[in-house]
């Protein structure tokens, strides 16, 4: 048994055990509880629902690793979506061509990056608390969005946009492919690049990182820019999935992304945590949602169960930490 555990840790890392156990528990429980659970339909719906939340979670993950937080991700996504929507509308609305879409997407990513840039600069140069900086950015972006849209939604996009939200390539949903690409990029970035290395070092002690010659300000700014860009990608997917943009779309995801990060073993103070366990945690959350749905529960009950799951995981972690101490 110990050898098995050691091999598991060697292959996946010790931080994967929790999320995998939760995954197994969810599959087994709902597999028995509902005959429709272990079917393609469940996995299909999970595959389409996962990406928005997943990419937003990546946008949240990066700042958390530096010991911060980005509460502006959902409204950054909305504003980025709006940017794309207007580019399409000014270029013919439903008749806009792929060039307009491409231009709009680039602009959307730029807007997302700009929101991150402002936050990153303020955080890096003034040392203001990231929660406050991103919170005021969130209030600002929400206000900006509501001001520009007057609370309404914008729709009427060319037909070719829809597959980004609904289409499949070789049976794999396009949004899921985008998510997987983002996960891979983030994973490599964090585990192999200098930026990723510096992110972890800054997260656990920014001053010691600075003394070792890491350009802490540059890293912080880049992390928030990346976070903004990730949020913008989520915004583009949301536009395609709903075929409209509305300020406030996905607002309820905000705290769920934080929950998913903690569930995936990210240290709330920063410095520790990997992308893959967070990805598995996201899958668990979505499977839980689908399973509860099959049992007749609605999204609200699911939200409550997600919260309970986070508490249970944290309590189990506390138990295992105390237990290990006693055994030693």
């Amino acid at each position: 048994m110990n050898a098995l555990a050691a091999r598991f840790n060697a292959i996946f890392g010790a931080d994967m055990a929790g999320p995998f156990a939760a995954l197994a528990a969810v599959l087994i429980f709902f597999g028995f509880a509902s005959p429709q659970f272990l079917t393609g339909a469940t996995f299909g719906s999970v595959a389409f629902q996962l990406p928005e939340l997943g990419i937003l979670t990546l946008a949240m993950l990066l700042p958390i690793l530096t010991g911060g937080l980005n509460l502006a991700i959902t409204f950054t996504a909305n504003i980025a979506g709006l940017t794309l929507a207007w580019t399409l509308q000014t270029n013919g609305g439903a008749d806009a061509g792929p060039a307009a879409f491409l231009l709009g997407s680039v602009l959307a990513l730029a807007v997302g990056g700009a929101s991150g840039l402002v936050m990153g600069l303020v955080i890096a140069f003034t040392r203001a608390h990231p929660i406050l900086v991103s919170l005021s950015m969130m209030i600002f972006l929400r206000g900006l969005g509501e001001f520009l849209t007057r609370g309404g939604d914008i729709s009427g996009f060319p037909a070719f946009v829809s597959p980004i939200g609904h289409g499949s390539i070789f049976g794999i949903p396009v949004p899921l492919l985008i998510l997987i690409a983002c996960v891979i990029v983030c994973h490599i970035l964090l585990s192999r690049s200098k930026l990723g290395f510096s992110t972890y070092m800054i997260g656990s002690n920014i001053e010691s990182a600075r003394y070792s010659g890491i350009n802490t300000r540059k890293v912080l700014v880049l992390v928030y820019v990346l976070s903004g860009v990730m949020a913008a990608i989520a915004g583009i997917i949301m536009l395609a999935r709903f075929n409209s943009v509305r300020v406030g779309h996905g607002e309820s995801y905000l705290l769920i992304t934080v929950l998913a990060c903690f569930l995936g073993g990210i240290n709330p103070f920063g410095g520790f945590g990997r992308v893959l366990p967070v990805f598995v945690a996201l899958v668990v959350l979505q499977l839980l949602s689908s399973g509860l749905n099959l049992l007749g529960a609605n999204q609200h009950l699911t939200t409550a169960v997600w919260g309970i799951l986070l508490i249970v995981v944290m309590v189990l972690r506390w138990f295992s930490a105390t237990f290990v101490k006693i055994v030693k």
């Binding site: 929950l259 709330p268 919260g307």
Partner: peptide
């Protein structure tokens, strides 16, 4: 962490 969890629990159960 605790209050984000209870936020979801309180609100989810209330709406449910």
């Amino acid at each position: 962490v605790v209050t984000i969890a209870t936020f979801n629990i309180y609100f989810g159960l209330l709406m449910f």
